[in-house]
Amino acid sequence: MFAHTLPPSPFDHGEDASVIPPEAERPEAPVILVRDLSFSYGDSLVLEQVNLSITPGEFVGLVGPNAGGKSTLLKLILGLLAPQTGQIRVLGQPPRQVTRRIGYVPQFPSFPRDFPISVEQAVAMGRLGIGPMLGWQRAADRDAARRALEEVEALDLARRRIGTLSGGQLQRVLLARALAGEPEILILDEPTANIDQRVESDVFDLLAVLNRRLTILLVSHDIAFISDYVSRVACLNRTLIYHGTDAVNAETIQQLYGGHVRLVAHRHSR
């Protein structure tokens, strides 16, 4: 919706070669590489000529208005959707072949809250695809689940039923499920949309710690908040432009959201 009312100018230069840093500036191969990607649902073009390159160890925040294509881009990177034009490489391979090496935290839990399952069992499902295929959950999977819960400081919830958790607790458990599979990349879709601000900063502090060993791609609508934490912000509204956190200013936000957004003052701690 926003895409059609926006002036095209800020995005015209967004797809040139400068978006992907030249080879010399990249010491390591990108963990996520998106090239000339376009995607549409029926008649509506959701993504147009998107280019994105994420190097190991980065913490990239993907922001943009609702219906700007953020979730679609994530689904394509996760291999849940197939690109119509363009190319995606994750860890150097087509997404479908490496989804097990990605930890994914969805915006909304895609399961019924009243499902009869304990937190520990739900987290252990992050281990699927590791080890032998047949049989019950093994002790090794339970241990990994408990380690992941400990890492997100939610080990005390292990025996609880999933339906009894608060929004913030559930978010930690979903993060633990993603970590249980020992991923190399962590992808989060609006992880803090349904929790209050205090818990939100706890989650981000946790992500900052995880970023020491994982590459993180995080979708958010809250550009002001995430720029304190991420190493780079990518702005997506059908097409993609991105910059370091310092470049996120009132003008960018206006371009992106069409000028209806208050700019919240925030500090850059790093």
């Binding site: 097990r100 499902m125 699927l128 049989g135």
Partner: peptide
């Protein structure tokens, strides 16, 4: 059910996540 218990559990609990785990 005994042989594929984890897969059935995953598919009944969360289809999308199960797919991402290669089920």
């Amino acid at each position: 059910v005994a042989l594929f218990y984890r897969q059935f559990l995953a598919v009944t609990f969360d289809e999308e996540f199960a797919r991402l785990r290669g089920v």
